[in-house]
Each structure stands twice: as structure tokens, then as C-alpha cells.
């Protein structure tokens, strides 16, 4: 019992918080890939969301405007990607990479325009803080399992979005249409689905989710000016999309696992005499293992949407 309350529960809670940006990124990636677009720009869109959320909540001191800016910034990045890949039929892989390069550059550029600022106002961060303990002042939650009800509002929003997406993809007509687009462009087109519209809408929505993930990092988790606040989380999300086999509910568990894993590296560092950098490799090594395992035992129902990477061209059916 001592172990449970003293070590495991706090660790579990930390892991949940750590995995949330990855969860947002993964959900965004799932939406895009269900529409048949591999978007490698998740890292870039998260960075753009992070920068926009940080800068806008800084100047307006309003958390809602900050979050809205992050959503718009992520969506804007995705819109560039959608315009290039859907309308102009550019290569999805290279366009996604370009988006990440652009997003990282823009973030650094915008954050460095104002040299004096180091952190966002406390009032903004406070409204994103745990509701029960920090806002209502309830004490004694630290080592109890009830702490799970006492996390940032953005954590629950992520869970909610995952559940909504699950129903959307599996139990609504739009969701089924979307999956048709992702599986077979020509068949979806023949069935009267507006393929390009579906692609645009879902790629952009996916980008907006990535933007929220970035905002979680820059406005709440690390509210200090940091150039690379996302730090590879977007890339892990790209891999996690595959790991959770394009299923939003599994993404919750997947992100929790990765959150726990990344923390494991950090918490082991105190006790073990290994180089800290060796432990930092852990999430990346596990990602590779995940990639290998999923590719070796790829079953039909857990496969990537079949039209992923292909651009729609009526002429070329």
C-alpha cells in the first residue's frame, strides 16, 4: 500500500499529464490519415500552436484567446499542407516535412521578436491549473487516486475529444464517408462523396488539435519562453498513430504509456549511475520497436488507410 500511494499514484498522474500533448498530436494525426493524408507536419503544427498560444495569452492575458489562437495557428499550418497536397497534389511526405521546418522556424522567429518576455502571466496559467486543488483549494489530494479528477481542464478536453472522435469515426455517416475516402478515393468519389472537401476539413481539424497540444505545453506545462517546447513530441505522435492502429480510444492508452515511458527515463536518472542521455533514448527506442512490431504483424483490420500518401486525381483512376 505504501508503494501504491507513495510512488505509483503520483507517477501515474504525472504520466497522464506528460502524455497529453502526444495525445492531441496523435488524434490530429489520426484524423488526417483517415482522410488519406499522412501529415508529417504534426511537430510543426504543435510548435505553431505553442507559439501562438503563448504570445496571444501574453498580450491579451486571456486564456480563451490564447487557446483560440493556438487552434487557429495549428489549423492554419494544416491549411497550407492541405492546399499543397489536396489542391496542388504535392508530395505528402515532403510537404509535411516542409511544414515542420516552417513551423519550427516561425516559432523561433516569433518568440524571439520580443526579447524581454520570459513567461506568461500567472492569471492565464492559473485558469488551466488543476481545478480542485488550485482553484477551489481542496487539500490532501496529492497521494490519493482522486488526484486523477484534479488535472488541467485541457487533460479532460483531450479525453473528451478522443471519445467524440471514436463515435464520429464509427457511428456517424460523416465518419463512415471519411473512412471511405481514406480507404479508396475512387470508390468514395463514385459514391458521390466530395473527396477534396472531406480531406480539407479533416486535415485542418487535425491541425487544430495539434495546435491545442502545443498550447497545453506552452501555456500550462512549461509556461516559460522555450524555443523548442514540443521537443519531439509531435514525431512520437506520428509514430503513435500507427501504434494505436488509427483508433482514438487506444490513443488515450498509447499516450499514457509513452508519457510513463518518458518519465521513467527521467525518474530513473536519480537512482541509477547510467548516463542520463542513455535513458533519454528510451522513448525513441520503444517507438522504433513499436514500428517494427506493428509492421511485422500487420493485420488487415489494423492497417493504415489504404489511400494514405496518394493524391486524388480523377483522371488517374
Amino acid at each position: 500500500m505504501e508503494f501504491l500511494t507513495h510512488d505509483f499514484i503520483p507517477y501515474f498522474i504525472l504520466a497522464v499529464g506528460y502524455g497529453i500533448p502526444i495525445l492531441y498530436g496523435t488524434l490530429g494525426g489520426i484524423l488526417a490519415e483517415k482522410a488519406g493524408n499522412i501529415n508529417l507536419g504534426i511537430e510543426g503544427m504543435m510548435l505553431m500552436g505553442a507559439a501562438a498560444g503563448f504570445l496571444v495569452s501574453l498580450s491579451t492575458e486571456n486564456v480563451i484567446y490564447g487557446l483560440l489562437a493556438a487552434v487557429l495557428a495549428g489549423g492554419f499550418g494544416a491549411l497550407i499542407y492541405a492546399f499543397l497536397t489536396v489542391s496542388l497534389k504535392a508530395n505528402q511526405i515532403v510537404t509535411g516535412l516542409a511544414l515542420t521546418i516552417f513551423g519550427a522556424g516561425m516559432t523561433k522567429f516569433l518568440l524571439n521578436l520580443n526579447k524581454e518576455v520570459v513567461r506568461i502571466p500567472n492569471s492565464v496559467q492559473k485558469s488551466l491549473k488543476p481545478i480542485l486543488s488550485d482553484v477551489l483549494g481542496i487539500e490532501g489530494l496529492e497521494h490519493s487516486i482522486f488526484k486523477i479528477f484534479d488535472l488541467s481542464i485541457l487533460v479532460y478536453l483531450a479525453f473528451l475529444i478522443a471519445i467524440v472522435l471514436h463515435f464520429y469515426l464509427n457511428h456517424t455517416r460523416y465518419g463512415l464517408n471519411l473512412r471511405a475516402v481514406g480507404e479508396n478515393l475512387a470508390a468514395a468519389d463514385a459514391a458521390g462523396i466530395n473527396v477534396n472537401l472531406y480531406k480539407y476539413v479533416h486535415v485542418v481539424l487535425g491541425g487544430a488539435l495539434c495546435g491545442l497540444g502545443g498550447a497545453y505545453l506552452s501555456m500550462y506545462y512549461i509556461p516559460i519562453k522555450t524555443e523548442d517546447v514540443v521537443h519531439g513530441n509531435g514525431w512520437i505522435a506520428v509514430a503513435l498513430v500507427i501504434f494505436v492502429s488509427w483508433k482514438p480510444l487506444r490513443a488515450i492508452i498509447g499516450s499514457l504509456l509513452f508519457g510513463a515511458l518518458s518519465l521513467l527515463g527521467k525518474s530513473l536518472q536519480t537512482g541509477v549511475s547510467l548516463s542520463p542521455y542513455l535513458l533519454d533514448m528510451l522513448p525513441f527506442i520503444v517507438t522504433i520497436l513499436v514500428l517494427i512490431i506493428t509492421s511485422v504483424q500487420m493485420s488487415k483490420e489494423n492497417a493504415q488507410p489504404r489511400s494514405c500518401g496518394l493524391n486524388f486525381d480523377r483522371e488517374e483512376r
Partner: peptide, 12 residues
């Protein structure tokens, strides 16, 4: 970092 953003724009 403006240069990085410009590189991205050129590629787009």
C-alpha cells in the same frame, strides 16, 4: 530564425 521560416516558405 527568420531565415528558417523563409526557407520553409521557399520550399512551400
Amino acid at each position: 530564425a527568420a531565415a528558417d521560416a523563409i526557407q520553409g516558405i521557399i520550399l512551400f
